[in-house]
Write a protein that binds this DNA or RNA. Sequence first.
DNA 1: TGTCCACTGGAAGGGAGGGCTT
DNA 2: AAGCCCTCCCTTCCAGTGGACA
Length: 411
Amino acid sequence: MDLIFEQVLAGGEIFRDRNLLRHDYMPSSLPHREDQIKRLGSILAPALAKDRVSNLFAYGKTGTGKTIVTRYVLERLQRKAKDHGIALNTSYVNCRLVGTSYRVIADLCRTLGVDVPFTGLAVGEVLDRLRNALRTRNSAFLVVLDEIDALVKRSDDDSLLYELTRINESLSDGWIGLIGISNDLHFKDFLDPRVLSSLGEEELIFKPYSSEELHDILEERSKIAFQPRVLEEAALRLCAALAAGEHGDARRALDLLRVAGEIAERNRESRVLERHVREAQQKVEHDRVKEVLASLPLHSRVLLVSVLDLEKARSESSVTGDVYAVYRELCTAASVEPLTQRRVSGLLNELDIMGIVNARVVSFGRYGRTKKIRLGVEARAITASLGEDQLVKSLLSYAPRCLHKQQHLNA
DNA sequence: TGTCCACTGGAAGGGAGGGCTT
DNA sequence: AAGCCCTCCCTTCCAGTGGACA
């Protein structure tokens, strides 16, 4: 037993340092992103001369390097600024995780050392505090708004962005620079033209990595992450190819490689092979689902069990009405007050965005208009993850009566 | 061609939980 | 402590709709 721990501590026979394969690890160079780095660097450079920088908008799908390139350049910029004795604050906010306009501004306030309660204040008030903090500090503030599209779509007003782009007008010495990151290329269509013209002063496009480019990235990273001669070339190629198939997602490629290595390690094998990568592919997807499910509120979980039950009971996809009927029954069984159908319809849309279910609006003509709903992930992954919650676990083994009735009718 | 179904999704508003001001 | 304001999550209400069917 001790030996196993020792091996892992020593880096094991497979890895030299597995953390180098995590996507939040910042390597010393970012292959195939030299252009974007140079471009971003030149856009932000005026900050070193205490000048205001242009706002910027970066597009590209997941895993195309938007976030890492931004962090990379910002880190270097900040170091340079420090050397030159220039006050430069930076803040990184993931808008999807943070959720609402209020919480985004509250987050920004906190980076500037201003205390803000998590609720209770008006957005305008929090915005004022942010303005005051900037005014009194007289410093530059570079703000990265990652997944900025989530903010606009969810709160369906872009007043926050509008206010942020206007803050500079009220500042004499300090300034705020915005870097919006989005993986939705059509996001611009939703924006207020005033915000668009301000935020989109500069644009940076991140194209998906090709299979060859991913190969280079993985090769460079694996040299430092794995022990020598452990990783088979074919395994590396497969990782690159699989991730390239998935819109050139470098994050996915690195995950695959790391998990493949971990599988090989666990099996006490001395080399990482293609079959480990294939196995890793399943596990990576499974882990993603698990992570998403863990963050779901109770009603979304119950809803998911409803979709699952329906999927088990019949071959064709179900519609909102069916799901809602099963959901109501499950709620009763669990002694939980059910939400309204309107709300459930909204929750289904949220699950659809997360990719947990597929919900598509269809019309059955005379028989109405509704959403067709199917599971978007494997049923097994759901039962495995939801089973950890006691209440939901009991629902997983509950057989809804309304389903039996429907089956009789079908027969 | 009009009807009608089963919803969708926007809008408004309520109330729980909270902060600020007086 | 009271009164006011806020956000967040939800409900209620309802106009709108794509397309099968008579």
